[in-house]
Simulated assay, not measured.
Amino acid sequence: MQTEELELIRRIIHGETDLYAQLVDRHERTVFTLVMRIIGRREEAEEITQDVFLKAFRQLDRFAGRSSFRTWLYRIACNAAISQARRTQPRRAEIDERRLAVLPDEEADRMEEWAAHQEQLDALTHAIGRLDPEERALVTLFYYEERSVAECAEITALSESNVKVRLHRIRKKLYLLVTTQRDETK
């Protein structure tokens, strides 16, 4: 696939621009899903997805092939979605940093057990929506898209250790958001 895609890209760069539709067909759905999970609004996500493919087309000659085309495209999509979310969405969940610091790791790791229960899953989904765009992007890439830490790092331009630390903090933050919400509805 990688070799085939590189050949396709080479041909597009050399003038066979109509072939770009094949790349769009291959990646449009996954790019839209990524953008939608970060943005949360369908129309806006559709528009950003179109912009991502337009930007990728314009910059295709800059694609060096050091990563897969999908990773390169995801980086463009992530940056576009995060930038749009920063401009249009209010600041998200405020967490007391002291509570976050003293929360035992084992408690935050229990979040994965909650997925078996619909009510808790709904609360978790709501909590993810309250994260900052950068945090939602990492959650989407790592948990929904099942990208490795290395791929997340490449897409987000963070170091692997930074991705690990951020994912750890996000799990803690989600735990606090969900438990706070659960306590407030009791």
Rank of each mutant, 00 (worst) to 15 (best):
I76C: 01
L131E: 01
S67E: 05
I39C: 06
L73C: 02
F57D: 04
R41Y: 14
E146K: 15
D61C: 06
D122H: 07
A137P: 02
D51E: 12
E5S: 03
I12S: 03
I82G: 04
E44T: 13
Q50C: 12
D109Q: 13
C78P: 00
Y144H: 12
E28L: 12
V149R: 07
H117N: 11
E43F: 10
V149N: 03
R87H: 13
V165L: 14
R42Y: 12
E184V: 11
E107N: 11
D96N: 15
Y175G: 01
E16S: 06
T3R: 11
H126W: 15
L167Y: 07
Y175D: 03
E43H: 10
I38Y: 08
S68M: 03
P104D: 06
Q50D: 11
I9T: 06
A115Y: 07
F142D: 03
L19F: 06
I170T: 04
R87N: 12
Y20E: 04
G15E: 02
R26A: 12
N162A: 15
R166F: 02
L177A: 03
M111N: 11
T180C: 10
L73G: 01
E134Q: 12
T30C: 11
A101N: 06
L138W: 02
T179V: 10
W114Q: 00
C152G: 08
V35D: 02
H126C: 08
F142G: 06
R75N: 08
L131I: 05
M1L: 05
V31C: 04
L141R: 02
A64M: 07
A45M: 05
Q120R: 12
A153Q: 00
S83D: 14
E135R: 05
R130V: 02
R182D: 14
C78Y: 07
R87Q: 13
G65Q: 08
L73H: 02
L19E: 07
K172E: 01
K55E: 10
T33V: 11
R10M: 06
R86T: 10
S159M: 09
E5D: 06
L121S: 08
R110H: 10
V139M: 08
K186H: 11
I76Q: 00
V35G: 01
E113I: 04
D132T: 14
S67T: 15
T71S: 03
A93R: 10
T88M: 10
R110F: 08
T179Y: 00
V52C: 13
V31F: 07
A56W: 03
L103T: 00
A80P: 04
R98P: 01
K186T: 13
N79L: 12
E134D: 09
E135Y: 06
H117P: 00
L8C: 09
A21D: 05
R130T: 07
I128A: 01
R166G: 01
R10G: 02
E154C: 14
R91N: 08
R136N: 05
T140Q: 05
E47C: 08
H126V: 12
T185W: 07
R182V: 15
H168A: 07
A127V: 05
W114C: 00
A80S: 14
T30V: 14
R42P: 04
P90D: 07
D96Q: 09
A116V: 04
